[in-house]
């Protein structure tokens, strides 16, 4: 029958693993959408603490943007089959990821130093839950980055086989974007 059309349709299909990742990211978006809307509803009821975001969050925002750049660099290098540049890019990304998580933790301690405690008011609790949950998701991304890095160093990939890195990079950019969204959202609501 209309095979050329069917053939084309086959070519347009995305790799199943990528679909799985995208659908997974949609469900993560829903988790944060639910918490964000809960925060908005709760804030609307009054009795809300307003405070400045800690300095550390500004720095970690810069780090996460930077790490997206290095991740992009690693992926482009892999596409050009430049292994050493890929490994360098992944190393820097992983280190930036660790720095980001450390920075988030420092941010929490800065909040506590300013007298903003987790349990005092739901506004404080929301901040910790949102940032903590994001941190855990980013930790998952970090584990993926390290896995791809180790496998690249051990030459476990055939040349040109970059699906693992592609998936990893998509998720990493997503985590970065999610943090930027959260940070802007928190800036606006506190």
């Amino acid at each position: 029958m209309n095979s050329p059309v069917m053939q084309q349709e086959d070519d347009l299909r995305i790799h199943p693993q990528k679909v799985v990742l995208w659908v997974g990211m949609v469900s993560i978006v829903m988790v944060f959408a639910a918490l964000s809307s809960a925060l908005i509803v709760r804030q609307g009821e009054g009795n809300w603490n307003f405070f400045e975001m800690p300095l550390a969050f500004w720095i970690t925002s810069a780090l996460v943007i930077l790490s997206s750049g290095t991740m992009y660099y690693a992926l482009r290098a892999a596409e050009k089959k430049n292994l050493s540049a890929t490994v360098t890019g992944l190393w820097i990304t992983a280190l930036l990821g660790v720095a980001f998580l450390a920075g988030q933790f420092i941010g929490w301690t800065q909040l506590a130093d300013a007298g903003i405690y987790f349990r005092d008011n739901p506004s404080n609790s929301f901040l910790i839950v949102l940032t903590g949950l994001h941190g855990l998701h980013l930790l998952g991304g970090l584990i993926a980055v390290v896995t791809v890095l180790v496998k690249s160093i051990l030459l476990r990939y055939k040349p040109g086989e970059i699906l693992g890195l592609e998936l990893c990079s998509t998720y990493w950019h997503f985590m970065g974007a999610l943090w930027i969204y959260l940070f802007l959202f928190l800036l606006y609501h506190y």
Partner: peptide, 23 residues
């Protein structure tokens, strides 16, 4: 689209039950 929202609801409930928050 919907189960993650239940997860969020349950997460806050777990915090209320176990970590002394007041969501």
């Amino acid at each position: 689209l919907s189960f993650p929202v239940l997860f969020s609801a349950a997460l806050l409930l777990i915090f209320d039950r176990s970590f002394g928050t007041s969501f």
